[in-house]
Design a binder for these strands. Sequence first.
DNA 1: TATACTACCGGCAACGTTACCGGTAATGAT
DNA 2: ATCATTACCGGTAACGTTGCCGGTAGTATA
Lengths: 386, 386
Amino acid sequence: MPRSRSAPTIHDVAAAAEVSVSTVSRVLNAKEDVAAATFARVQGVIEALGYESSMAARGMRSSSTQVIGLIMPDMDHSYGIEVIKAASRVITGTAYDLVAMTCGSKHHAERGRWQQQRVRRLNGTITDGVIVVVPDVASFDTDYPLVAIDRMVAGATYASVSSDNQGGALAVMAYLLGLGHTRIGYVDGLEFLESAAHRRAGYLAALEAAGLPVDPSLIQPGDFKRSAGRVAMRHFAALADPPTAIFACNDDMALGVMEEAQLLGIKVPEALSVVGYDNVPEAANARPALTSVDQGIEPMVQMAIELLLELISGRERGGDSARMQEQIKMPSRLVVRDSCMTPAPRPDRQMPSRKATAKPVAAQPATAQQATAKSIKKGGEAPLHA
Amino acid sequence: MPRSRSAPTIHDVAAAAEVSVSTVSRVLNAKEDVAAATFARVQGVIEALGYESSMAARGMRSSSTQVIGLIMPDMDHSYGIEVIKAASRVITGTAYDLVAMTCGSKHHAERGRWQQQRVRRLNGTITDGVIVVVPDVASFDTDYPLVAIDRMVAGATYASVSSDNQGGALAVMAYLLGLGHTRIGYVDGLEFLESAAHRRAGYLAALEAAGLPVDPSLIQPGDFKRSAGRVAMRHFAALADPPTAIFACNDDMALGVMEEAQLLGIKVPEALSVVGYDNVPEAANARPALTSVDQGIEPMVQMAIELLLELISGRERGGDSARMQEQIKMPSRLVVRDSCMTPAPRPDRQMPSRKATAKPVAAQPATAQQATAKSIKKGGEAPLHA
DNA sequence: TATACTACCGGCAACGTTACCGGTAATGAT
DNA sequence: ATCATTACCGGTAACGTTGCCGGTAGTATA
């Protein structure tokens, strides 16, 4: 056997099996019209040679590669990693393979260009469709199967699935209000991200629904970093009428809030309740364990992949799928841990309509209802979109 | 403009720019022999159309894709994730792109086949070379650029870079012996993995070099899981002459040892010193903070990528690179934290040659020499290879 | 003015694969 | 015995790209 050091091609297989390349191709693709004996012989040669068809050539000719791409800004952030892990798990159950690619976490401004470039690069050549994580652009100029995960910008022309940020925020607020808090501070996120905007909208909507006033001094800006939580905490502590609970737009900031509170001698949860968002692993390890909102990355990714596969098969069947621009919202889940409790009664301030519910005995962390409060607010998505 | 919904090809660009496809190709590849005016015009059309060359077609024709692949068993394990992150960072500085692929964390037995399959699939089609993480097979039947990371099986025929496990173990032992420990327990790893074998070899070599006997009861089996550390600890505690220090083959098991020691009322580090391996994030967060060995994944990955790029360019320049089978060992670094100290003097046992060095005053954690003990044992790699 | 050189560009073939069409042999029907 | 049908298989043309060769025009040299 002429041991060619470079990978064998379909021609090598054909020659060794003494058939034409067409027949080998038919065997590879499990087509009809090939005799059982021939089929077995060719398959044997394939095994023997360790032949594997070139996905580049195959993809070029048949525009079906059985590979889906995952494009993300970077792989340093834990969120992206979670997505990869979930996608890796989900894809195992399908006939597809997964390739992950970063699009260089360049400056925010030019990231859109990079995403476009990556999408185009994969498009129609080595993948049958792509999932883009946290896209920065409103539209990709292609009709090839694509679904975005999280943080669609308003008016996106592509399919996307993201978590119900507003619903999650509403769940947090319902929980906090239910505990008896009426002064709830909010640490905001970067305003140009839809996720942050929706969470904030949930915070405001919940206040309004509860008939509580919106106090601007209770809303502090943030950038998702831990340090922002710390400065926000310092600000809140300096207030004449400080909040009894703080809802931070993400866990990192909530952790920052807790750190700074400890430094200031404010005990969590006794003197201050804190809630985060994202349910990162550190949330469970914090002291006290941080109550947070779990976005359920895995079901989100699963949904995205299912939708993508449907788009792909729909495209193969001809006409454009009706779901090409579908925007799916996944429910979030409030994970109650130890960082919240009923607010301590404040002697200097009279509670108009409440009786003395806050007996000292009630002063224990509210860990009873473990991770139950589902926040499936079905119709709660309109207010933000104009 | 005929707004073709599918991605534009080089022919579309050529037609729009009124040149031949050859000229467009020359522009794309920044070749000479094209007039400045033409160059600019073509480039303008490329921009306008948003054209991106198909990496499948390009790769097929020119066998240079500017992409390197990363093949790993799964993306669920933190080790793999660290490798991805590091690779993502390192690749940013080069002209290459990175695609990551899992090879399905199937059963160990058939994983080798999967790795082979993935390598062949990528080979020569969409990547210029691949990095395989933790390969299970001794050789890949190809000569295309490939470097393995970590845990080469003995007699590998491909290039690989892994951490100096034996050196790391020697550093641990030097540290422990230096503190005055003479009875040092060892919790082993899965024996079929080279990493575990080398660490064990380091343990044994250090004992021999120090003139200490090898006590089989001080060597307990393990499987890298936390539970294994716990049962090992129980075993050690039941010994008539228990060890004063325990070196576990990885951090998870060391953490298990510490947990169980606490349950047994054995204080760490006062009554028992513990050292782990891998320096996982939890090691720093443990109480007491766990002394461990940092494998330095990032420099390892960096080295792997550098080597791979050299193999690629060497291949392009013709002859096979001399480094095609290079086996690189990266130095490990002992990270000293709070889990070790000088052994307490034992009244019932006389120390033959030592004077009373263990004054009560010396009973404080040895945190002074922070992360310095480099374990660059240059010549210490032969003993394991036959 | 004739020749040689250079700058620039187009045509052709090939990479490895699959879709499509057509051809041969064997089988069944008349 | 002739014809139609079927089962099987081979040849050819693409897919989008780049490498190579050759060709034309313009400029410098004799």
